[in-house]
Design a protein around this nucleic acid. Structure first.
Lengths: 329, 329
DNA sequence: TGCTACGTTTACAACGTTGTAAACGAGGCC
DNA sequence: GGCCTCGTTTACAACGTTGTAAACGTAGCA
């Protein structure tokens, strides 16, 4: 059994509270007493019971992060950023995988954590940053730290246009989407084409089931089979782009000579693909840091609920091999 | 502020304990009373305070998983398997990233969790399964669920030998290693060669700094530059193998026609590389499940410490494109 | 009518901690 | 010598929950 304050107090011949005072470095403790207590602490191997401390303080120092699955590198990298940011705030992170069904997740540990972060709030949204919320009621204010979906994909598309590409595929559009990252990104793609005076062509907007490598490969396969000519691919995330690279490679289509490819997410994977993938770095670290900070603020301000806030972080375009200037063009 | 048992009791006009009894479905509660309490619970939106419950019970229902980083897909996939297994045992998982320095990690949350899993116990070990331990003392017994490192790499090497490969590179050996996964795997490689009557050649045992894609690519680069002829690569993990594929691809060396490549880990990535990577599936799900179960057992048996146990799980060789039989051989 | 029996509800204590406020004791000052 | 002051230590209560055991009240039986 673990030693308690009481054990230490008994051994040191002082009251429980004095031991507690020593532990918390309270002023006005006689050095001799302090030493005696410290010796007793060492002797019994006392370590504070955090559960009891939490009960007193009403805090646990733990937040939960709800995400679909860690198998997806996007979420894994997000999780690692969140854990690092939380550590800086003195918080630990409990991870829950929602696997699509997201509502149930919040129930399980809500009463055990000081706050919760959701990487997707509804099932419709894709990777649009983080939502932060206290475990309180279902209708408490929710902060949102998000990325520039539209602007970033617009910049990505313009990057290909600047290379002279004119038949640019939007890989990852999803049929009926009117909200979520998918539609925002599609909007950016269309804006870029429009600004360049190009018509948007339905046959270049390729739908996928989900934003996975597999679907990226399959959609590219279908695209090639359809015979639709194209010279660039703006993939709505890196997984799709990597899938596309695979299919193109298999079919012997050279990237970036024949087709330029750009992704979105800046996964570690993007650096090591063949060719290395040009992509949008959406500001993941900053999203994680801000979301954790906002949640920490809310936890601190408990009482007068802050209004819901939304913050958008800047993105960057990372040029790699998949959009290199074709030398012999 | 959250409602407590006391609030519910007051509203329902009963004692605190009766409310508690209703919540726990104790027998012998008059239906009328029960209904009144249930209504009150709903009215005030009562949800049990888990921290208080934990203090009473001495359990938290949380275990921690300590791993180097989630950025590494191996650990991310391991984490997802652990979280799933924990969920089945009714446990939540708190993730801590050790980033190499591993000793410090255990201190931070030890008093907040019922038990801990380490994916590497010392810095020397690579991915050799999971260690399970109660948060108690530093010298409490440690369970270990591990994989067949030597046998698996031996099987991998024999797989290439069966394809007719004779100049097989061991990618991932590490110079002075005498323990850890690296040396176990190197042993398996040498066993396979010896069993086939081949001498092991130092120039085919390629060292790397760390088991990353980057180092896999760099080591392959160095290998090619050295002029040493080779027709197969047994990489000690998938990341190294994927790095090797990248370099081979870049240099125009055809896999599997000219070189067969096999990895170890069976990451999701291995399925989507070009060519798809043949690899060893080390039994990750089973490792996670068993480790969590053993830890749960220890948590339940608190009092009489079980002796430390070690379990080894079976592996499987997953054939994909990178070791396909060369048609024109 | 008086007693037992049992279903139902309750008071109390405890888990280990910490804030509050009071108690203690010794030194300094008038 | 008596009183005040201040440094040091302590008792008590409380955080919200649940196990133990006792109290309550009514029905059933003699």
């Amino acid at each position: 059994m673990a030693a308690t304050l009481s054990d230490v107090a008994q051994l040191a011949g002082v009251s429980i509270k004095t031991v507690s005072n020593v532990i918390h470095d309270h002023p006005n403790i006689r050095p001799a007493t302090k030493q005696r207590v410290l010796d007793a602490i060492a002797a019994v191997g006392y370590r504070p019971n955090l559960t009891a401390r939490n009960l007193r303080s009403g805090r646990t120092g733990v937040i939960s992060l709800v995400l679909p699955t860690l198998r997806n590198p996007y979420f894994a990298e997000l999780a690692e950023a969140v854990i690092e940011a939380a550590e800086r705030e003195g918080l630990s992170v409990l991870i829950e995988q929602s696997r699509g069904a997201d509502a149930g997740a919040r129930a399980s540990t809500a009463q055990l954590v000081d706050g919760m972060l959701f990487s997707t709030l509804g099932s419709e949204a894709e990777d649009t940053g983080l939502y932060a919320q206290l475990p309180a009621g279902p209708h408490s204010p929710v902060d949102h730290v998000t990325m520039r979906n539209t602007e970033a994909i617009r910049a990505a598309t313009e990057h290909l246009l600047a290379l002279g590409r004119r038949r640019i595929v939007a890989l990852g559009a999803r049929p009926g989407d009117t909200s979520g990252a998918g539609s925002l990104r599609l909007l950016g793609y269309r804006q870029a084409l429009a600004a360049a005076g190009l018509d948007s062509r339905p046959e270049l907007e390729r739908a996928v089931e989900s934003w996975t490598r597999f679907d990226g490969a399959a959609a590219t396969e279908a695209l090639l089979n359809s015979g639709t000519p194209f010279d660039g691919i703006v993939a709505f995330n890196d997984a799709l782009a990597l899938g596309a690279l695979r299919t193109l490679g298999q079919r012997g289509i050279r990237v970036p000579e024949q087709v330029s490819v750009i992704g979105f997410d800046d996964l570690d994977d993007a650096r090591y693909s063949l060719p290395a993938l040009t992509t949008i770095s959406p500001g993941r670290e900053q999203i994680a840091t801000l979301a954790v900070q906002m949640l920490a603020e809310r936890i601190a301000e408990r009482g007068e609920p802050l209004p819901a806030r939304t913050i958008t972080v800047p993105f960057a375009l990372v040029e790699r091999e998949s959009t290199a200037q074709a030398s012999a063009d």
